[in-house]
Design a protein around this nucleic acid. Structure first.
Lengths: 301, 301
DNA sequence: TGCGACCATAACCATCGGTTATGGATGTCC
DNA sequence: GGACATCCATAACCGATGGTTATGGTCGCA
């Protein structure tokens, strides 16, 4: 019923050469192959395209009528192909960066972006918010080529990362909580509190933010599961539990009714820029380099 | 490198349904076949056209850009196909009628044509002059669908015919020939003359116009071979030979220096309208019917 | 936790699209 | 006129393509 694009090229070649052997070598195929394909085309169209009298080949009336149409189809194909090439190019020049929470931290993202754009001015960066169910912020399923993540990463051998920020932890409490009066809190004082936890799918990161390692075998009490800052805020206000977080993220929770306090006795947490070990991507490399330069400058400054 | 038109239809179907299973049944193929073809298309284009996340299918950026282009290619194909259909229709409505010499004979052709056009007003008749090397006037190689021929036909079982005209023979002589003075000539008086003969490829027709059967075993003397009326005229004027012909064709030779005279002792010759036994063509049938009616009328009148 | 929906993969088979070798018709040259 | 060159068609064969059915894996849902 319908026809291979190649057959159109073949037809046009023969129509232009009016010579099967020459057309065949122009197309880099054998003459019998070309003869057979043209016959096949004629059969599916139900009409002869060429008159092959001995010693010369001519277009039939139908063939002559078909030729310009075939050209138009091929031209349309050409344009279609070009749009594909174009979107491949823009895709090759776009980088999707995932993040689980806002990275914030004093203009870090804009600084990286501008440093990156100096190197690759025509590249396009897309920032992507990814829910907390995925601790890799889209790296795992390929929807991000790079991502800002909290260590430790699950399935760590698939990824590489550069640590961007290292920060002390704070705890977010209801403003009327008994411990809210203290300037700083020992983690010991929190072990009996109900905690808000990341979803199970977050893997080792869930345990990390529950500070399981610092509980000496005592399992944490889970007040609720959280998948977004808003949810977290609401749960804390409701008194469903407390929650550890990096000090740099404290602003996202400290609205009315919630306070954050320094916690002693916990190691600092690490925000990293991570990428897939298997994806050799120059954009990723450039973005990572930009991030490294920015953080080095900011430490120096 | 290039793509089957079918793949475009497949792509468009999936893009419209955004559902492989439904698209597959709309296309009357199995779902795995469709999946595989789309994957193949994506591979040859070098870009993903669809995002298949679990539970829903979406166009990628490249796919969305490609979709309208694909529509355009298919539309161009549609138009190409329509021109093919159109030329098939006009071809199905055209009849090529071959003839070896002018048929002439008092408006016979126009009469047949007008009678034919009453029946099939949209049909188109093309008259074709065929050289004398082919006694079937193009029937044998298919370049004519019907033809005016002189009997007997070579390879007669391939053809059918209707006798249109039956006429006495005349002989064409140089005007200064010894026999030119007679009103009519016995064939006996001509047997020693050199004759102009049709080419060998004319088969039995050559012998027929040499009246070999009336020579009682004496082989004819061949003065020259002829393939057109002009050639014949020239040879006769030059005295290279004489030539039998139907009385109805006499006007084509009786110019200065050539005369035609009735010949006694020869059977009348028969002009027939012939067609291929294997070609079932309503146009041919109508043309033959028209010819029969015209000749019946002209006999009656 | 089993089930249904849905896309992908596997295994298999006919047809397609290519190859080389050969045939047959035609025009050419000695 | 016969050997030869040219050129398109056919034959025989082979790997790739495009379809089938059966099955797997993942996700949403009751």
């Amino acid at each position: 019923m319908d026809v291979h694009g190649r057959d159109l090229r073949y037809f046009v070649a023969v129509a232009e050469e009016l010579h099967f052997t020459r057309a065949a070598e122009r197309l880099f195929i054998s003459q019998p192959a070309l003869s057979k394909q043209i016959q096949m085309l004629e059969r599916t169209l139900g009409v002869a395209l060429f008159d092959r009298s001995a010693k010369d080949v001519r277009l039939t009336e139908a063939g002559a009528a078909f030729l310009p149409q075939a050209h138009k189809v091929l031209a349309a194909w050409d344009r279609a192909w070009q749009t594909i090439e174009k979107s491949k190019r823009t895709q090759a020049a776009s980088l999707t960066v995932g993040m689980s929470t806002s990275v914030g931290r004093d203009g870090l993202l804009p600084a990286i972006r501008s440093r990156f754009s100096e190197q690759l001015p025509e590249a396009r960066i897309t920032l992507r918010q990814v829910g907390w169910e995925d601790p890799t912020a889209g790296l795992a399923d390929g929807s991000s080529a790079a991502a800002f993540v909290w260590l430790p990463l699950p399935d760590a051998r698939r990824f590489q990362w550069a640590v961007i920020v290292q920060e002390p932890m704070v705890v977010a409490l209801p403003a009327r909580h008994a411990l809210a009066g203290s300037k700083a809190i020992d983690f010991e004082e929190l072990v009996a509190e109900p905690f808000l936890a990341l979803p199970k799918s977050a893997g080792p990161l869930r345990d990390y933010w529950l500070a399981v390692e610092q509980r000496r075998g005592q399992p944490p009490l889970i007040g609720a599961e959280i998948t977004s800052p808003d949810e977290t805020y609401e749960f804390i206000v409701e008194g469903r539990g407390v929650c550890l977080l990096a000090i740099g993220n404290a602003p996202s929770l400290t609205r009315g009714g919630v306070v954050t306090r320094r916690v002693r006795g916990l190691p600092p947490c690490q925000l990293a820029l991570a990428w897939r070990r298997d994806a050799e991507n120059p954009l990723v490399r450039a973005y990572v380099a930009a991030a490294r330069e920015v953080t080095r400058d900011s430490r120096a400054g």
